[in-house]
């Protein structure tokens, strides 16, 4: 019942291709600033868990962009839905809700993957090359699966484009800063650590960082990411019908 997902994905890729240059520039700016400000300038001489701060930062930024860039597919969907009414073309087409969600989620993951590569290239420009093996990419992709699915689900539920911006400022940005991107969550008080353990990004950052440092990643991180990914995807599929008036 997933025939047609490739048409949805294909459309997103055509749009992505058209904007690739602009997007790559956009994906580079804030990580570059973080690397310069926190990694290079402030982080000199700091060492965390036996690594330089910039080595610590790069996997964190990769985890963060796997979240923010896959979540950004929600904005794309909203513009297509509220502004261009293109979503109606999908609603009227003989494709299932699952096919639609799969196409959009894979598009979000692709976007995140490209943004992640940009981070690794930037890292290399700062002379930091870590280990980016299968366990690194698995955690990266699972995290982007979670956030693309959430983005698709929210895009179906919200009633206007402004609502989408609210979700980003109140949920995504705080998580990006607190979920183990810039500092180890062990530096926070115990109660805060307990809260952060509920956030997918914390687990993704752990797994991604451990893989980058060639340490054995924790199985529990992956288990949690897989479970959340499945839940988020199911949630997204269930919301599609809600978008009809």
């Amino acid at each position: 019942m997933i025939r047609g997902w490739s048409a949805v994905y294909f459309r997103e890729m055509l749009i992505l291709r058209r904007r690739l240059f602009r997007l790559i520039s956009a994906w580079s700016v804030s990580p570059l600033l973080y690397l310069i400000a926190f990694g290079y300038a402030m982080g000199k001489g700091i060492s965390i868990q036996g690594h330089t701060y910039i080595e610590f930062l790069i996997p964190g930024l990769a985890a963060m962009s796997s979240m923010t860039q896959s979540f950004a597919i929600g904005s794309e969907i909203n513009i297509a839905r509220f502004y261009w009414h293109i979503f109606e073309e999908f609603q009227a087409a003989p494709i299932s809700n699952t096919a639609y969600v799969l196409g959009e989620v894979l598009a979000g993951m692709t976007r995140a993957l490209l943004a992640g590569c940009v981070i690794l290239v930037l890292g290399a420009l700062f002379d930091v090359v870590l280990s980016y093996g299968p366990s690194f990419w698995l955690a990266f992709l699972l995290n982007s699966l979670i956030f693309s699915s959430l983005a698709v689900g929210l895009a179906m539920l919200i009633k206007s484009h402004a609502d989408q911006a609210m979700v980003t400022s109140f949920v995504i940005t705080p998580m990006a800063f607190l979920g183990g991107t810039f500092f180890p969550i062990e530096h926070l008080p115990h109660w805060a650590q307990i809260i952060l353990c509920w956030l997918p990004l914390t687990h993704a950052a752990n797994a991604i960082r451990a893989s980058s440092f060639n340490e054995a990643p924790q199985f529990s991180n992956y288990l949690i990411l897989v479970s959340l990914g499945i839940l988020a995807f199911v949630f997204a599929v269930m919301t599609v019908n809600r978008a009809r008036d």
Partner: peptide, 26 residues
């Protein structure tokens, strides 16, 4: 369906718009 409000992908070409539609219909 030809809806009341134009719902085309304005940044894509005429052909691309049509190809996406064809793929949606298998």
């Amino acid at each position: 369906l030809v809806p009341q409000h134009t719902n085309l992908d304005v940044d894509l070409s005429v052909e691309e718009n049509l190809v996406i539609h064809g793929r949606l219909y298998g």
